[in-house]
Write a protein that binds this DNA or RNA. Sequence first.
DNA 1: GTGGTCTAGACCACA
DNA 2: GTGGTCTAGACCACA
Lengths: 125, 125, 125, 125
Amino acid sequence: MAWKLDNDRPIYAQIVEKIKLRIISGFYQPGGKLPSVRELALEAGVNPNTMQKAFAELENSGLLITMRTSGRMVTEDEERISMVRETIAKEKIDAFLQDMRELGFDPEQSFLLIKNNVEQKREEE
Amino acid sequence: MAWKLDNDRPIYAQIVEKIKLRIISGFYQPGGKLPSVRELALEAGVNPNTMQKAFAELENSGLLITMRTSGRMVTEDEERISMVRETIAKEKIDAFLQDMRELGFDPEQSFLLIKNNVEQKREEE
Amino acid sequence: MAWKLDNDRPIYAQIVEKIKLRIISGFYQPGGKLPSVRELALEAGVNPNTMQKAFAELENSGLLITMRTSGRMVTEDEERISMVRETIAKEKIDAFLQDMRELGFDPEQSFLLIKNNVEQKREEE
Amino acid sequence: MAWKLDNDRPIYAQIVEKIKLRIISGFYQPGGKLPSVRELALEAGVNPNTMQKAFAELENSGLLITMRTSGRMVTEDEERISMVRETIAKEKIDAFLQDMRELGFDPEQSFLLIKNNVEQKREEE
DNA sequence: GTGGTCTAGACCACA
DNA sequence: GTGGTCTAGACCACA
């Protein structure tokens, strides 16, 4: 029922990440309205305060905008959304290369493995 | 004190992964002796039975060999270790490409991003 | 009440053998559903964990398939069942010839004794 | 330290069987003297009374003979030893054919399997 | 209800 | 001391 969260990182940080993904993927559209704090807190199975904290961080990064009257909306600044997307991608890439290094593959080798994998998939189509 | 374990996956599965990495990385050498079940259970902060279960799985996959009454050693079959290493790398690659897909990058794009990243690092040196 | 188990071999190993026989003999049909862990544990008079361990082993060998939340079924792969049957037969034959050797009969002699025994039975019919 | 005995059958019966095997295999020679009840009871890890009972049974079957003066010896009647050997062989054969029947092999098939096994071993030499 | 995981703790064989 | 087995019993996810 609740979102799948682990105990390694702060819960609010995990929520931030989830919501970021929903914005990047277009699940929450630019300029669109977000569910209320209470609603999302219920869905995630966390305390509303925690959800509040996550929202504050998302506002800080400029992805969410509080509407004086009621609720919050996703920024319409698609440039900004795009930047966040690239930042996260960069993190994923670094994490991936790090994982591969632990397996004994240096970045060049990891790059070649990805290359083979992609080419193989291309041929299959 | 204890190993860093999350609640998402079974503890024994995470231990299996950790020990695999230690074997792949050479931290535990081929043919080398492993700490006892009890010792590692203490280090990981888990019940000896749980460590036992992890060991059983590692033995099933042929990475560990039990020498009754005198502990366990890593297989001397480096071929097998190498195979496990490649299997894990394959999984990491698939997971990475999947993560990127969720961010809206298809495999070709992910490949290019890795390429840029690697070339950039090469130039920095 | 409980199954007939001896103290020579691990209980779980004896259970594995019993269930294998039930599968080979068709008492549990290919594709058929098995009693639950708890039910069989009760029938066998052992701890559910022990039955679980036996099941895990049977699943490892591909004879059982877990359908989470709705129990386990016997594989529909009759080829595999057949293979297990032949493996066990091979073990029985080896054990038999070994027993006979201890009695001072070499394999040729054991073979002749079996031959006589079978021919005698054939005549009786 | 003690002999390996299970809990399925009476202990004295298992001891009878062990000693019979030792006689058949020549470990105890025809006409040879046997260790004392106490000695063997110690070796087997059983109560001397139990060993006594086993001896009584072996005497009954004519394999052992009590020497008025001291201790017991194995019969010198090799004919009798031979008969016991064949009786046991017969039991092993019946048990084997029964086991195979449970696996779904009728005696004819079991016979053929033994035949193949023996021929294969012959070729290997 | 079903399977899966985990702990605590006992006891065993082997050397 | 080392690995192996087993029990009792708790708690979890899934549907």
